[in-house]
Design a protein around this nucleic acid. Structure first.
Length: 583
RNA sequence: GGGGACGUGGUGUAGCCUGGUUUAACACGCUGCCCUGUCAAGGCAGAGACCGCGGGUUCAAAUCCCGUCGUCCCCGCCA
């Protein structure tokens, strides 16, 4: 080993020691005589001082340029009085070089690696091998590594087996579009890359593996977003003989360990649990960011006999009338209020009623339609103080939820509201099992066709299937859907009822899910689990807005890799072997 | 499938709306020289883009129009 220390490992404890550092020349400051080098490796920077009296080092260092790879041998010494650099971890010491060796040269780079914050992402991705040299990416990749290893440690200690499931699997034309891989041996047939190891992990439970986890790659051929890549990594977990609570506690334990390991304040567990119906009412979203107050309230009762028809009519007709307080929003201008109304309309609202509260009075074009009793009831319900504003929407429940939820997010952004805390986890549970598809005249799985219904809702299969609540749940952190999971159907007859409502014929069901349906008949234990997005979790922990910042080699929004230039064309010979033709 | 933003030396931007004194400006970086305590080092000198690509309008286009390619954001989609 050439190296004795990492750059940022040297400290005052090493004063007087002979050390050898290896790294990249980040910058050099040539004073004609004495010359300073900032040497960088994965850990950080160390200042190297080259004095003219050290002949070999002084001559050699003259050739050094930015990003040259160098080896420095020298003595650690305390920096002279007044020359410490508090901004640097190693700022109290420096290495007096006795030997300087250039291990490799470098042409001038397209951008400076030391700070890439001003470099366009396009350039960074094209030269990802240089971008990954930056402190930002070193930090992100190392943090992701720590998250992954903490997760592994947690599951290992709790009796989980890490089991790999296949990457070449079969297409199930459900859900997202599959990435397909043509088979050479079976012309005309295709493998599919897994959208998730779902069926395999359930089968592992039926195999008696009892507890499984995997940091699994999942693939989806859908359009990309800041939080979506064609391939992503999920922390995939499945457990036998468990109910919802057991899965929740397991995931909470994992998150607590991850946040502790990555230097955060201890998380408060258990996380709060909300029914799906409840979050939709209170936040207008199934993944609310509850770091912010703004809660939506049902205020239909207040307006049942109101003279304000816009609200009274819907209230009488059993539609939803809901109000939301926004702190400090009385300062929002009339023009801005009109914009917010427009915003609500683009999200499905027919209109939006708003009231600003100032000096005990309500201010709004529609204020005159409210009685004092209604106003005070509204203030009491929403908790609006002077200086706040209240927004009221009326329509079908799901429509009000959608635009009030969108408005809530918009207000948080526009008013630049301060979050109440750093991390806000919650469980959203009891998602509807089925979703009516009017155009196809059938029900479809709201999330996952293998989810178990709530026991008390099973009679609804025969009366009102759309109302069946399920053991499907999500874990939400700061408004981001982190994990999704469920207690599965381990009984074939319930599973068949669900599949029937989805209008799958026996043959169809067998074709899509055959292996799982068959396995369910062979002594399937009660089981459940979840998949948690490692990329999203890492991005949140790194304070990054895009998961591309925590993936070493991500794709652009058109699913290309700017560095390797994939996808690319292949040779005719390859196509022939696969019996494929291009356009 | 749809909507929006952007594309100017190596990098990041200004200029574009209101075409012509722009031989396209600034900062960082780069090259050379000077300088023995800098760490956003400093000083002097210098090289480097014809404005993503194609077409059109015009006496004249980085600037206006159309198309195209690329990047980013959003809707759809993502069981």
């Amino acid at each position: 080993m050439m190296r004795t220390h990492y750059c940022s490992d040297i400290s005052e404890n090493d004063i007087g020691k002979q050390v050898t550092l290896c790294g990249w020349v980040q910058s050099w400051r040539d004073h004609g005589g004495v010359l300073f080098i900032d040497l960088r490796d994965r850990t950080g920077l160390a200042q190297v001082v080259v004095d003219p009296t050290e002949k070999q080092a002084f001559d050699a260092v003259q050739q050094a340029r930015s990003e040259y790879v160098a080896l420095v041998r020298g003595t650690v010494r305390k920096r002279p009085e007044g020359y410490a650099n508090a901004a640097l971890k190693t700022g109290n010491v420096e290495v007096g070089a006795s030997e300087f060796r250039i291990l490799n040269t470098s042409k001038p780079l397209p951008f400076e690696v030391s700070d890439t914050s001003a470099i366009s992402e396009e350039t960074r991705l094209k030269y990802r091998y240089l971008d990954l040299r930056s402190p930002r990416m070193h930090r992100n990749i190392a943090l992701r590594h720590l998250v992954a290893q903490t997760v592994r440690g947690y599951f290992n200690r709790n009796g989980f087996l890490e089991i790999e499931t296949p990457i070449l699997t079969r297409s199930t034309p459900e859900g997202a579009r599959d990435y397909l891989v043509p088979s050479r041996v079976h012309p005309g047939k295709f493998y599919a890359l897994p959208q998730s190891p779902q069926m395999f992990k359930q089968i592992l439970m039926i195999s008696g593996m009892d507890r499984y986890y995997q940091l699994a790659r999942a693939f989806r051929d859908e359009d990309l977003r800041a939080d979506r890549q064609p391939e992503h990594t999920q922390i995939d977990v499945e457990m036998s003989f468990v109910g919802e609570e057991d899965i929740f506690r397991t995931a909470e334990g994992m998150m607590a360990e991850v946040f502790k390991a990555t230097g955060q304040e201890p998380l408060q567990t258990p996380f709060p649990e909300y029914d799906f119906a409840d979050v939709m009412l209170r936040y207008g979203s199934d993944k609310p960011d509850i770091r912010f107050g703004l809660e939506i309230r049902d205020c239909a009762k207040i307006f049942l006999s109101s003279g304000f028809k816009v609200l009274a009519e819907p209230a009488k007709n059993g539609l939803a009338v809901r109000a939301m307080r926004a702190d400090g929003a009385a300062a929002v201008s009339r023009t801005e209020m009109d914009k917010l109304t427009e915003f609500a309309k683009t999200n499905g609202a027919k209109g939006l009623v708003w009231l600003k509260f100032k000096d005990g009075k309500a201010e709004s074009p529609s204020a005159k339609f409210f009685t004092d009793v209604e106003l005070s009831a509204l203030r009491e319900l929403t908790g609006a103080k002077d200086g706040d504003a209240v927004f009221i929407g009326a329509d079908k429940p799901e429509i009000v939820a959608a635009f009030m939820g969108a408005l809530r997010k918009e207000l948080i952004a526009r008013l630049k509201l301060k979050p109440s805390r750093k991390w806000a986890f919650l469980w959203v549970k009891h998602f509807p099992l089925l979703e009516w598809k009017p155009e196809e005249n059938r029900y479809d799985a709201a999330h996952n066709p293998f989810t178990a219904p709530l026991e008390e809702d099973i009679p609804l299969f025969d009366t009102d299937p759309g109302k069946i609540r399920s053991h499907q749940f999500d874990l939400v952190l700061n408004g981001v859907e982190l994990a999704s999971g469920s207690v599965r159907n381990h009984r074939r007859e319930i599973q068949e009822k669900a599949l029937n409502l989805m209008k799958y014929s026996k043959e169809d069901a067998a074709l899509r899910f055959g292996m799982l349906l068959d396995a369910l008949e062979c002594g399937a234990p009660p089981h459940g689990g979840f998949g948690l997005g490692l990329d999203r979790l890492s991005a949140l922990r790194c304070g990054e807005d895009s998961i591309r910042e925590v993936i070493a080699f991500p794709k652009t929004s058109t699913a290309t890799c700017l560095m390797s230039e994939s996808p690319n064309v292949v040779e005719d010979k390859q196509l022939k072997e696969l019996r494929l033709k291009t356009l």
